[in-house]
Every structure is written in structure tokens, then in C-alpha cells.
Design a protein around this nucleic acid. Sequence first.
DNA 1: TCTAGTGTATTATTTATATAGTACACTAGA
DNA 2: TCTAGTGTACTATATAAATAATACACTAGA
Lengths: 123, 123
Amino acid sequence: MKPIFNDHTPIYLQIMTHIKKQIVVHILQPGDKLPSVRELSKNLEVNPNTVQRAYQELEREEITYTQRGMGTFVTDIEEKLHMLKKEMAKDLITNFIQQMKSIGFVEDELAEIIAVFIKKNKE
Amino acid sequence: MKPIFNDHTPIYLQIMTHIKKQIVVHILQPGDKLPSVRELSKNLEVNPNTVQRAYQELEREEITYTQRGMGTFVTDIEEKLHMLKKEMAKDLITNFIQQMKSIGFVEDELAEIIAVFIKKNKE
DNA sequence: TCTAGTGTATTATTTATATAGTACACTAGA
DNA sequence: TCTAGTGTACTATATAAATAATACACTAGA
């Protein structure tokens, strides 16, 4: 499972993103149990402490909750999960636009650039 | 100048990106002298060694070249600089599409999403 | 009641970055 | 020739992140 990682972002942050993605595409549903710290650390081939840190942060963001002795679960608050997808999308879009502008593109050409790029990729 | 930095990317990489951007928007032209290691480290409020590492990597990527005792300069090879913008744009676009897909969007809606987002932001 | 599976805590060590301070080599120009 | 401004090298230290190993507390279910 190691390939989900890149070189320069802390692994615990990458694990958080990995789980958030699984939530927004409904691989993980509200109330679902996350893999245990030990199990996920084995699957991802990372230290249990690293997974634990990711889980701690996810709980701090109220995306998950913990029942001691039982496990960590995706929050039941659907509102929260709906917001999560919106926020992640907004962050990606905002970041993309800002980055493209910083290398000399203007806002009004971005949609067309995306459209052309995708069309070419299909060929 | 510190605000160009974020929390989780090594500073030397952020400096590299910062300079690449200045090159592709022609703030820095082919043959232009970059700020000296000491000067830039003072402006950015980072250690000279950190700037030096960024400069080393830029030279390794053949975006700059060095004349000992004189300074570090943007490459004269315009072809190289033209490719740089193309590559940076391609990386941003590819990454954006891949990330959006990973949270449940499909390629064909992305251009429209961008267009709508930009339009709303103007209001 | 016991046990296996949970989260959690603690201490030590390693690695990549970043900093700090110093020194050396080269170049242009006064 | 000297000096100020270049890049470069080196050693030491600090910090965040990741690892390693171990232990403790809680819960459900046999």
C-alpha cells in the first residue's frame, strides 16, 4: 500500500487525506469502523504511532470518533461529511487556480485549458 | 517574505518553486543573475545553507548555471525555459484532475466546475 | 471470568531539514 | 594588488517526523 505516499508530505497527513477520500466516495460510510491502528499500520507498512497520530487528528477535526476498547468510527453526522467533500473540492479548485495564475495563466482561460487537456488525453 | 512558505514542504523546495515561477512569468529573464545566496537568505529570512541547497538543485535541473565568484544565472537556453512552463502547467493540471477524480468527480464535469467557480468568485 | 482486540501512553532512537558559525576559493573592479 | 562580493564546504546543533519496543486501560464476547 506504500504507493499512496509521496516524498515530502508527512505520512500522517497523507493517511488522513487517504481516509477522507474514502469517506467522500462512500467507501467508508457514516458510522463505519475504521481499520484498527495496528491493522492499518500493517497494511500501509508504517509505524502504528504514525497511524495513531492520523486518527487523533481526524478525531480532532470531528470526522471520526473513538470508543475506547472498540475502535474508531466515521462520524454519523451526515452534514459534516457533506461539508467535507465540499471543502476538499473547494481547496483543490482554489489551489489549482491560484497556482495556474502564479505561472502566468489568467482565470478565464482555465476552463478551456482543462477541457482541451482532457480531450487530448482521451485520444 | 516569509509568507511564501507553508508548514509541510521543505523550504528549499519552496524556494525552488518560487524562482521557477519568477522565471516562467519573465520576472527573471534568460541570463539574468539570481540574488546572491546571502542576499536571498536575508530577504527570505532563512539560513544561507537552505538557499544554497535550492540553488544547487536548480542547477542540477539545468534551470540555472553558476559562475564561481560571479553568481548564479538563469539559463540562456530559451527552449529549456519554454519547456519549464509547459511542464509546470502539465503537472498542475494532471494533479488537479487526479485529485478531483479521487474525491468522486468525473473528468467531463471539471471544466464546467472551474468555470462556475470562477464566475461565482467574481460576483 | 478470561482473552483477544481495541485505543493510548511512554521512552529511546533515527532521519531529513533547517539553522549557526566559520572558513576557503574565485572574480571583478577600484 | 587589494578588497568586496560571489559560490562552496565543513562541523555542530536543533527540530519535526517516523520508527521501535513496550506497557497499560477498556470492551465485547466466549
